[in-house]
Design a binder for these strands. Sequence first.
DNA 1: ACTATGATAAGCT
DNA 2: GCTTATCATAGTG
Length: 212
Amino acid sequence: MTMTFTEYFEQTDTITIAQQLLGKQLFYQGPAGLLSGYIVETEAYLGEKDQAAHAFAGHRSAKNEALYHAGGTIYIYTIYGQFLLNVITQPEGVPQGVLIRGLQPNLGQEVMQLNRRQPRSVFDLTNGPGKLMAALGIQDLSLNLQSYATSALTLSLTMEKRPLAVNAAPRIGIGDKGIWKAAPLRFYVAHNPFVSKMPKRAMNLENYGWQS
DNA sequence: ACTATGATAAGCT
DNA sequence: GCTTATCATAGTG
């Protein structure tokens, strides 16, 4: 089955997309060659009603403009000097998206190593939203508002690994936002060592949490 | 969000 | 007793 990016990111709800992105491969055609990794951790942000979302209560500005664009749009924002990567979901005007929080390196792991300052181990390379962007070497906003369908940053909707289990948990870094602080909108491949804050004893180093 | 550092707990030769 | 892991705190853009 072949599906366009628009279909994939507009035809179903954001929570489902956040779960189904686990195992999809993210590609970046960078200056040092092709880099890629499998998505292992995501968070869903549900628009105007979601107190933790940038579009809460309809907030709209130049910084979060991408949220209001079509499904498949790249949304990058910065916090504390870190660049964070999102995929916009839902049709134009419905400001929802998915934050990519963890990546299992595949192509160009050596380059990613060089792009990072001081990773403690391979598992420290891309196990966080700011870390994975640093590893890819994306440290500006030039890809913001562009599309995964047509830019140097893309992802495969077909080639994928399959998680043995997907866990849901509260999102990270959410302050006092009522029910939205505890809402289980963070999804990750159970026992995968590239998931942020994964305790070592919970890591499965045999299969990384993937089927076969 | 990340890094660095220190405290506490758990493991191990 | 030493090493490693987990948790807490502070500093930073």
